[in-house]
Every structure is written in C-alpha cells, then in structure tokens.
C-alpha cells in the first residue's frame, strides 16, 4: 500500500510541475461551465438543480480524460524512464494502481473545482444536495472508468497521439454501448442476451442512473469492475511490452 501511495504522490506532483494540470483544469472548467450555461440554458430553465451541468460530463470526459490518460505509460516508454521505474523495488501492479490513482485524484480535483456551480444553485434556490452529491460521485466514478481504459491503451504504445485517439475511440464504444445505433449493430448477429449485456456495459446508462441521485450498488459494482479489469489488463500489457 505504501508503495502505491509513494508512486501516486510522485505522479500527482508531476501533474502540477508541468503546465498540463493548469491547462486541463482551465479547459475543463470553461467547457463544463460554458456547456451548462449556453447549451443547457441552466438559468433559463428556472430549476434549482445541476442536471444540465452533469448531463454534458460524459461528452467532456470522452476527449479530456484520454488527454490525461494518454501520457501515463506512453511517455514512460518513450523516454525510457519505465526501465528506471520498474527496476525500483516496486511491483508492476503497484505502479499501475499508483499511476491510475494519481490521475483519478487529479480528475477529482478538476471536478471539485466546479464547486461554484453548486454554490450558485444553492444561492438561487433549494436544490436537493443529496442528488447533487450523488451526481458528483457518479461523475467521478465515470471519469475513473474512462481513465482506466485510457491508461490501458496508453500502455500499448509509445506514441501519445495514438494512445489519445485509441483511448477516445474505446471510451466512445463503452459510453455509447446502450445507444440504439450500437445496439442494432449487435442485434443483427448476436443473441438477445449479449445485446442486453452490452447495453449494461454502457457508461451513459450507468452514469445517468447515478446522476438522478440513485446510487445503486450495481452502478458502483459496474464502474469499479471496469476500473479493476482495465487495470489488470494494463498490468499484463506493461509486463508483456517491457522488452519491446
């Protein structure tokens, strides 16, 4: 555990010593706010809730989270620091988890910095703060899922751009698997149970449930399983690609 924490701390501080953290946070806040006000017409709706704020998160994450995740392993492999890191007395699994946690905490910091939205909505009316808290948790879990997928893809390549594009595509598939287009694609040639299980894998479906304020155990299990499986695969890829 201590090793994971040491690795995560180094990673997290690396975010803030480079411009990456600040660029990411500023863009994330600007987009999250802009979408809510202009597209979601938050003020015009006259409702004291943050539904239109959270509704755009999956789409924001679709390209912002791969931008955070793309460097996790591709950069290490490109610069050769992976050899330095993996010859320290730490297991590959600990590094995988440590790196992921650092990126996840970083995404959490960006998300937490949207707190003025929450203050505003409380000044304007009496929102259900329980629902808002649940939606924040759901949003952060979804970010975690996207991040774990991105980290996994990042371990496959030395090229950060390839990692970004592939991770975005993979996240898109996971996000949209509940949507009709993807569903009909599978329906044509797979059994109904498979189509249903693909739809269950949808980030959108799972996130929408949580953002309504209902934290179902199944949604938690879903996001944590995605993270767990992706990190497991991530570890295997790092191990397999070390010498290449």
């Amino acid at each position: 555990m201590l090793n994971i924490w040491i690795v995560a701390r180094r990673e997290l501080s690396a975010y803030f010593t480079s411009p990456l953290a600040y660029v990411f946070i500023v863009i994330f806040l600007a987009l999250a706010g802009g979408l809510t006000f202009f597209f979601g017409q938050w003020l015009e709706r006259g409702q004291a809730d943050l539904q239109v704020f959270f509704i755009y998160h999956p789409y924001l994450y679709l390209f912002l989270i791969p931008a955070v995740g793309m460097r996790l392993w591709a950069e290490e492999r490109k610069s050769g620091t992976i050899e330095f890191l993996l010859t320290l007395p730490v297991t590959t699994g600990q590094i995988v988890v440590g790196k992921f946690l650092a990126a996840w905490v970083f995404a959490g910091i960006a998300l937490a910095l949207t707190f003025p939205m929450w203050i505003t909505v409380n000044m304007l009316g009496q929102p259900d703060n329980g629902v808002i808290l649940a939606a924040y948790i759901g949003s952060w879990l979804m970010a975690g899922g996207f991040l774990a997928l991105s980290a996994c893809v990042s371990a496959m390549t030395k090229n950060q751009v390839i990692a970004f594009v592939l991770a975005s595509a993979l996240c898109f598939v996971f996000m949209m698997s509940g949507v009709e287009i993807i569903q009909s694609f599978f329906r044509a040639w797979t059994p109904q149970t498979f189509v249903e299980s693909v739809s269950e894998l949808s980030f959108l479906t799972n996130f929408n449930e949580v953002s309504q304020g209902v934290i179902d155990v199944r949604d938690l299990v879903f996001f944590f399983s995605v993270i767990g499986i992706a990190l497991f695969v991530n570890t295997a890829i790092v191990e397999a690609k070390k010498g290449v």
């Binding site: 040491i6 180094r10 690396a14 620091t81 050899e83 010859t87 320290l88």
Partner: peptide, 27 residues
Amino acid sequence: IGYLPEGAPLYGDMTPISLLNFVCKVR
C-alpha cells in the same frame, strides 16, 4: 541493486533532490 539504465533516463520534470527523495522513499 543500484542500476543506471543506458542513457540515464530520468523524469525531466523533477528536480534532482525530489528524484533522490523519491528513490529513497521507494527504497
């Protein structure tokens, strides 16, 4: 073991002192 990989790859964004502290902590 103490190991210097070929080309001495290190984290460019860290300072030597923070790198050394990191290594000592991991070790």
